[in-house]
């Protein structure tokens, strides 16, 4: 119940968060796609991207975030990211190169490399973002269980477990 009050009271934080979220998103995209030129890449971008949703969850309650990014979507996204990465390698296999040899992706080896790196970084980013958000979900959705634990463990619980 305390939680609700806190959430209702902190309108200021909520408003500021609403402003911050697009900026962080923008930064995440910057890190993702500019990783070739500066520091950063798929992994970092994924984490930053996830932090948007985590922030949203912390401020507005995780239940609302779940409406934006549903667990099912996360499950599929994290799989797709990994598949995108591994699939890029398979495509280069089909194009006659070795696995993960991006040079064969396009006629020009260097732009092939660029596209390959872009593709795998995207895969990493998607997977990492989805994984991080789902980690957040996992570690916050168990909260309601806490009240139901009896200390120390009762005899009946011992029996039921064996």
């Amino acid at each position: 119940m305390l939680k609700r009050n806190v959430q209702q009271r902190h309108r200021v934080v909520q408003v500021i968060t609403k402003f911050l979220i697009p900026m962080i998103l923008l930064f995440a995209f910057y890190v993702q796609f500019h990783g070739d030129f500066g520091a950063g890449g798929g992994f970092q971008a994924g984490v930053i991207f996830a932090s948007v949703f985590i922030l949203h969850g912390l401020i507005f309650g995780e239940a609302r975030t779940r409406l934006v990014l549903t667990p099912n979507a996360l499950r599929i996204l994290m799989s797709l990211g990994l598949l995108l990465y591994a699939g890029t390698g398979v495509v280069s296999l089909f194009l006659g190169g070795n696995y993960l040899d991006y040079s064969v992706l396009l006629s020009d080896p260097i732009s092939g490399q660029h596209w390959g790196i872009f593709s795998v970084e995207l895969g990493v980013g998607i997977t990492v973002a989805a994984v991080m958000v789902s980690l957040f979900y996992c570690f916050s959705s168990k909260r309601n269980f806490v009240g139901h634990i009896s200390h120390p463990i009762s005899e009946s619980e011992l029996d039921s477990d064996g």
Partner: peptide
């Protein structure tokens, strides 16, 4: 988190004690 749910403790020695008690039972 799961261990805490099951044992009510996150201390190694407590867990050991509970387990050995369980075996005794």
């Amino acid at each position: 988190v799961r261990i805490y749910e099951k044992y009510g403790s996150i201390e190694e020695d407590d867990i050991q004690a509970i387990d050995s008690q369980f075996i005794c039972q």
